[in-house]
Nucleic acid binder design. Structure first.
Lengths: 131, 131
DNA sequence: ATATTATAGATATTAAGAGTCTTTAATATC
DNA sequence: GATATTAAAGACTCTTAATATCTATAATAT
């Protein structure tokens, strides 16, 4: 199993937006170019981030996308959920109560997600900046 | 992202085989019926487990599949790797050295895998037995 | 009014997963 | 040795999700 490319693009975009001075707006054109993507495709991903409240969009001239002013401490998990939805890695197809296998898999998944929830984009942005 | 159904089937089959008295052979017919699968489809999955050395197969009358006599302490991760391959959840498409995002994702993935490596099928089988 | 930029919807393409069918090879039993 | 049984392998189909692309529409700044 793999995370989608979309998740990868979203994470890179978020860090890039975090690095903007004053967290000002950047157009999809520039964001797409940066990652060698078509603007229309990236905009689909960015709309998901917008709906999740992670970024804000303003149409029109001088518009674009910028980091949300209201949502702070955005984590890796926030971005993943926004792009991929809050689905589970594993679900037992044989629906018997309290499947022991599902229990183990779910526990492992939750630990991973808990870790990704504690990883904040801002920390990555700061690290990237200081390089 | 999701683990494949095949992984689910494989895990259930492994536990079932663990529960056999003397760990004797079971035919794909019975294993498939148990999970409401077609035998030919399940056999594809079982062949992967065989090649990975997790189970042993004997063709012919009274043949079937049984837990490997040589490989002990089979973990959840062993089964997952056998079925899905040892792929990574996340790979940065922009191939720059030491991508900070990839680092975070890889670390989280490794922790999860490390946990799944410590979860042994035999323990699940024992729990299931005592119910 | 015009240029710019995001959003939405329709559509096409590709890749992977899921599953079936048929043939071949190996083994046990008689 | 003949026969029945069972796994392995290969070709093939079907479905679904991801990955896009294109066009039209709505919102905003100048």
């Amino acid at each position: 199993m793999r995370y989608s490319n979309a998740t990868n693009y979203a994470l890179h975009t978020m860090v890039h937006l975090m690095l903007q001075p004053e967290r000002s707006s950047v157009g999809v054109q520039e964001l797409a170019q940066m990652q060698d993507l078509s603007p229309t495709y990236l905009s689909k991903i960015l709309t998901k981030l917008t709906k999740a409240g992670l970024i804000e969009s303003t149409p029109g001239a001088k518009g674009g996308y910028k980091i949300s002013r209201t949502k702070h401490n955005i984590s890796f998990l926030d971005v993943i959920y926004a792009v991929e939805g809050e689905t589970n890695f594993f679900e037992c197809s044989i629906h018997h109560e309290g499947c022991l296998i599902e229990n183990v898999m779910t526990q492992a998944e939750e630990n991973m997600k808990s870790e990704l929830k504690s990883k904040l984009l801002i920390d990555i942005a700061k690290k990237a900046e200081s390089k």
